[in-house]
Amino acid sequence: MPTLARLSGCTLTMYAADHQPPHFQVRLRDGREALVEITSLRPLSSAIAPRGLAAAIEWAAANRPVLEATWRELNP
């Protein structure tokens, strides 16, 4: 489970051999998590309010090629 980024208050990770669609995990310090689809940057499931995901979505939008390449590497 590589760490993609550590932002203020959250960590973005991605698992190998994970299910479709391509996505990444956002985990807050308090343990709440969300799965965010890479293509649309919409939450697939979330225990985090939209405001709490804002920084992660902003980072993902700026780094989408990195997310897509990492997904392909971990999930051939």
Rank of each mutant, 00 (worst) to 15 (best):
M1C: 08
M1A: 11
T3N: 10
L4G: 09
L4E: 10
L4Y: 05
R6Y: 01
R6V: 15
R6Q: 15
C10F: 01
T11P: 12
M14P: 03
M14E: 03
Y15M: 13
Y15S: 15
Y15P: 12
A16K: 11
A16C: 07
A17Q: 13
D18G: 10
H19M: 14
H23Y: 07
H23F: 04
F24R: 00
F24Q: 02
Q25F: 10
Q25N: 13
V26I: 08
R27E: 15
L28T: 06
L28I: 04
L28H: 14
R29E: 15
R29W: 03
R29F: 09
D30H: 08
G31D: 05
R32S: 14
E33T: 13
A34N: 04
L35N: 13
E37D: 15
E37N: 12
I38E: 14
T39F: 02
S40G: 09
L41I: 09
L41Q: 06
R42G: 04
P43T: 04
L44P: 12
S45R: 14
S45A: 12
S46Q: 06
S46R: 04
A47K: 12
A47R: 14
I48S: 08
I48G: 06
I48E: 05
P50T: 06
P50D: 13
R51M: 07
G52A: 05
G52D: 02
A55W: 00
A55C: 07
A55I: 02
A56S: 13
I57T: 11
I57D: 03
I57M: 05
E58V: 06
E58L: 09
E58W: 00
E58D: 13
A61I: 00
A62Q: 13
N63F: 01
N63I: 01
V66N: 04
V66A: 15
L67F: 06
L67E: 02
E68F: 06
E68K: 12
A69P: 01
W71I: 05
E73I: 02
E73R: 15
L74F: 11
L74M: 14
L74T: 00
N75E: 07
N75V: 05
N75D: 07
P76H: 14
